[in-house]
Nucleic acid binder design. Structure first.
Lengths: 203, 203
DNA sequence: GATATATTTGACCAAATAATTAAACTATAA
DNA sequence: TTATAGTTTAATTATTTGGTCAAATATATC
């Protein structure tokens, strides 16, 4: 029964992920999740007790995925410029496969800021900064990136890749009306964003 | 009674705006709005019939405000570089006063894409492009901004000012933990974003 | 194969919440 | 002052929805 057990619990988790990402915690209905999984609603409570616990399971998984994606950049033996290109290629490719994540994630944090506690321990900008500084002292100096401006620099990079997805539905609509293709725009953005940021810091 | 009439209807609208921006359509409660306005819940229905109609009134007002803010930039007699500086100063100052708007707006569109119809007629990127092209032909050529890359360029500008607010709660939390001040970061962003974009296109 | 355990289901419950209603109250006009 | 129309309120209703429960079914163990 372990086999079927896993299958059901997994089906629930996957359906819950899809529905929560689409509708958010407040907009999602337990019945929608059950229907999406093709099972009886009571099974959701059998495996996860409450909507809140089910949501938390989904949210924590997603938060983990999101932040583990940032780490490898610093391990690579690349120049700062190459790391920037590497990051945009990887990150935008990831978001292409999970386009609803930014909107879901940011909105749920907005709804309930207390949830930040569940993953903020994984984030350490200061450590990231000291690592960066150790690896790229010369380049950072040349590009005028200091401890002072790290937040500006980091959020600009995040903005360049995340914003098109956070505003995806709106942006795609406007583009369609104007005769542009959103998927094409995103594909080209991997390179555009990297060029843009590198030019910006090279001054 | 017209006096009091306007007062009540206005109070409802303002409270509804505050609550909807904070909680979203799904998370907002009619009772919360009534409490916020200090009135009886039935008055909400007396003036706006349903939650949906009240929400639509609020949403349309906000959508109108948001897009009217983009237009004036083009009227100014400034160089492209000056226009970029002007835009970030104005736009970020506006968002400082309305920090919850981006998250609210993008999320509600995500929840119900059909609402885009209510304001998309006000958006015409092609017209904006021809206007820009007429005013700054030389600069655009120099900066390598073409009809092809306008979406990349425009969304990059939007991203630089909107993203810090769309991700405000998360970003502010991380910054607080790391010893940075979010309000200071935002104030400095007016200039940083302009410098960043101008450097980026100057190559 | 019989018994125990785990899983699944449909019916049901209780709380939350949007919406309605009738009565009370207030202001305006005759 | 009285009548009328407009406004506000408290009580109530209807619906939605998260959660429970007991019975039914499937699976594992002996």
């Amino acid at each position: 029964m372990v086999e079927n057990d896993k299958q059901t619990e997994e089906k629930i988790f996957e359906s819950a992920t899809a529905v929560f990402i689409d509708k958010g915690m407040d907009g999602a209905r337990m019945q929608d999740i059950a229907d999406h999984a093709g099972i009886n609603k009571s099974l959701l409570h059998y495996y996860y007790r409450t909507k809140e616990r089910l949501f938390n399971a989904v949210f924590e998984k997603i938060a983990g995925q999101l932040f583990r994606r940032f780490a490898p950049v610093l391990d690579e033996k690349l120049s700062l410029e190459e790391k920037i290109r590497f990051f945009f290629r990887e990150h935008i490719t990831f978001l292409q496969k999970n386009p609803g994540l930014p909107s879901f994630f940011l909105n749920e944090i907005n709804r309930n800021p207390a949830m930040i506690k569940k993953f903020i321990r994984h984030i350490d900008i200061n450590k990231l900064w000291t690592t960066l500084e150790a690896q790229h002292k010369e380049e950072l100096k040349k590009y005028n990136i200091t401890r002072e401006t790290v937040p500006q620099f980091m959020t600009s990079i995040a903005a360049m890749s995340v914003f098109p997805f956070a505003g995806r539905v709106l942006i795609a609509s406007i583009m369609e009306k104007m005769g542009y293709d959103f998927d094409d725009y995103i594909e080209k953005r991997k390179e555009y964003a990297a060029d843009f940021v590198i030019s910006a810091i090279k001054k």
